[in-house]
Design a protein around this nucleic acid. Structure first.
Length: 467
DNA sequence: GCCGGAATTC
DNA sequence: GAATTCCGGC
């Protein structure tokens, strides 16, 4: 939409500590509406929900994922501003919300102006490729919430599906987006838009009372990032991104991290001895180099954080990570973004299964609503979300070696690894294992074995230096 | 206030 | 496809 009607309504100043995460491709209008990737209502709702300044207008309240529109007219007005629909009203807005019924969110019956997000639906609908049956995400989740049937979403799982991206130094408000829809390469979503997800799995308290992420001032973008500004999603526009990874590594699901650490050689050996705890390397500043991999920095495999592993939020390596590379194509990664890089070595590129094949018929939510359609999933799987956008080849060409980076956000509420349910067959890691050799075009740096080789070589070099 | 059909727009 | 708009019914 070419709407500038809100550009002059700009609200608050650029946020400083925002923690953007990538809006998956599906978060915006699909290819059917090329060039018109408008924010969707539920995104808008989420954003309002996580802005303290709108607490009086709309806020989390009550049950898990539930929110109440305290000021329907105001919400409608804001939405109208956002969409340049001056005649928007709550009646219309609610009509739109109604269409989300049982999918993204639904009306809470009996509660006035109250709706509730269905994040499991969001994930299921948009990431059908996730093998709920064998995914560590959901095994863990089920373990967490005691449910063996509902593949609900743990914060980490959710977070892993909404990879965090770095920002640009720009940022504006919720309303300054009309004219500049995000590019396909980096739609962003803020994890803290899901307070109930980012805090603890399945909390029952009002989300507003929880949340590991300290509430930031309104519009507080960590790197001045504004997901809706042009180029905000471009990997070429990450000047302020903490070097090392386009995505703060805490983005990746814990279960995977633990899984990786438990993997037999060579995977386990990919874990840099000194990096398991996550501290971070310094930031050889690199400014907005293509896809953030500048200066021949090592490519990194960002793995999910896990409790017990110290992980700093700023733990971001230099250069693009493999993890980020795979981010744009979540479904193809099986279940993991973090480990995606491992899979990556096995066959990214064109030799992926078709969305349909990968999907394999996913209607796994036991409580699936009759109208929960696992459709139109191809949008989030391939096409525009591949190499050409993230330039894996380019990235890797700068990389000297692969590394696994264990880090992430602190305070993850996850059970100890030992308490996680044992892998079932097929082994959760199966999907992480390379199935086929890396394609010839795959840079050696992305191959685990090559990484080892490189690592060894580096070690030898260091020995020589020291001697 | 809520639900939901239908036509329409983008 | 995702609203937006209109409208009628409860």
């Amino acid at each position: 939409m070419d709407c500038n009607c809100v550009s002059d309504l700009l609200l608050p100043p650029v946020p400083a500590l925002w923690t953007p995460i990538a809006f998956p491709e599906w978060a915006y209008k699909p290819e059917s509406s090329p060039g018109s990737r408008q924010i969707q209502l539920w995104h808008f709702i989420l954003e309002l929900l996580q802005k303290e300044e709108y607490q009086g207008v709309i806020a989390w309240q009550g049950d898990y994922g539930e929110f109440v529109i305290k000021d329907p007219d105001e919400v409608a007005r804001l939405w109208g501003i956002r969409k340049c629909k001056p005649h928007m009203n709550y009646d219309k807005l609610s009509r739109a919300l109604y269409y989300y019924n049982k999918r993204i969110l639904h009306k809470t019956k009996g509660k006035r102006f109250t709706y509730k997000f269905n994040f499991s639906k969001v994930v299921l609908v948009n990431y059908p490729i996730l093998d709920m049956a064998s995914s560590p995400f959901f095994l863990a989740q089920n373990h967490f919430n005691g449910s063996s049937t509902t593949p609900d979403c743990s914060p980490e799982a959710i977070q892993s599906l909404f990879p965090r991206l770095p920002d640009t130094s720009r940022g504006t408000s919720l309303f300054d987006r009309g004219t500049t829809a995000p590019g396909p390469e980096g739609d962003k979503l803020r994890l803290d838009s899901f307070p109930f997800l980012s805090s603890a799995p399945c909390y029952s308290k009002p989300p507003s009372l929880l949340g590991p992420y300290p509430r930031s001032p309104p519009f507080d973008y960590p790197w001045g990032f504004n997901p809706y500004l042009p180029g905000a999603f471009s990997l070429n526009n990450c000047p302020k991104l903490p070097p090392g990874s386009l995505y703060p590594s805490q983005f990746y699901p814990n279960p995977l991290q633990s899984s990786l650490s438990q993997l037999p050689h060579p995977f386990s050996s990919l874990l840099p001895p000194g990096e398991a705890g996550g501290g971070e390397r310094g930031a050889a500043g690199q400014t907005g180099g293509t896809n953030g991999t500048a200066g021949g920095q090592p490519a990194r495999l960002c793995l999910p954080p896990y409790q017990g592993l110290s992980m700093g939020r700023t733990d971001i390596g230099n250069g693009a990570t493999l993890g980020e590379r795979v981010e744009p194509n979540p479904p193809s990664m099986g279940l993991s973004l973090g480990l995606g890089a491992v899979t990556l070595g096995a066959g990214t590129g064109t030799d992926q299964q078709s969305p349909t094949e990968r999907r394999g018929g996913v209607k796994q939510d036991p409580e699936s609503d009759s109208d929960l359609e696992i459709t139109d999933l191809s949008d989030c799987s391939s096409e525009n979300e591949n190499e050409h956008e993230f330039g894996i080849g380019k990235e890797s060409s700068h990389a000297n070696r692969s590394q696994l980076v264990l880090d992430g956000k602190k305070g993850s509420v996850l059970p100890p690894i030992s308490s996680l349910p044992p892998p079932v067959s097929p082994h959760p890691l199966k999907s992480l294992m390379p199935i086929t050799p890396p394609p010839p075009s795959l840079p050696p740096s992305l191959s685990p074995s090559m990484a080892l080789h490189e690592r060894h070589r580096e070690t030898e070099t260091l020995k020589l230096i020291h001697s």
